[in-house]
Amino acid sequence: MIPPEFEYTAPESVDEALQALTQGGEDAKLLAGGHSLIPLMKMRLAAPSLLVDMRKLSDLRGIERANGGFRIGALTTHAQVSQASELGVAAHAAGKIADQQVRNRGTIGGSLAHGDSASDMPAVLLAAEGSVVARGPNGEREIAATEFFQDFFETALADDEMITEVRLPAMDGWKFAYEKFTRRAEDWAMVGVCAMVRGDFEDVRVAFTNMGGTPIRASAVEEALRGQGRGAIEQAAQAAAEGTDPPGDLNATADYKRHLARVLTRRALEKAAAA
């Protein structure tokens, strides 16, 4: 498993990196932790002509609390996110990604930019109503999670843009759970459910991992529960699979995934409520 040849640069600043990315054209790619891209290159399913390595962009690492929320640098690793318990469900879910070695290397920005709805952070970002900050030749823009994920491995990020930051609102008063159903601990989720409950069900958020081409909010469940109590969870969870069209795969048929979504939604909400 040998990656194809590519040109390489490791710029010292975000501006230089963006310049290199633009000059490299559509086959140029950013390299963060590389844990989505390098496996594809080794399989020769990806063959970028130029890799712009972000490793020297140290401004993009770290977590800070600002303006009632958190700003997480794009290069912050899953391990670092998982250790920042103040991030709540994001920390909890990050600790469930793959294994320690992968978490030590994989980054939150890289994972989101890859746009794989089977990975865990997209559903978390969606449930938390977070956003990403993208910089490109025309400056910086903030893209809400609802806009960011567009289809299988497709995001709103332009070829010449870089995620610099991930923004999560502070979720004071929210309780949460992330139920990740896997065969083995290190696997991708067959289905994942991110559930968040504020106070006594004053507000409820539920989002799915791997139930479609993008992470999906379970609006029917949320509506059925909002303002209700724990007693309504079982009934509300029955609506979990509404409007989903999950892809079948080796480990789960579409029917089974819809069933899992209902069961895991109930369990996640019960756990969140009991937390």
Binding site: A79, Q80, S82, Q83, S85, E86, L87, G88, A91, H92, G95, A170, M171, D172, G173, W174, K175, F176, A177, Y178, K271, A272, A274, A275
Partner: peptide, 17 residues
């Protein structure tokens, strides 16, 4: 390692950050 790690949390313990 760059940051002092903490033991992994159990589900739901990190309530309301």
């Amino acid at each position: 390692p760059p940051e002092k790690p903490e033991a992994r949390e159990e589900v739901g313990k990190g309530v309301g950050a």
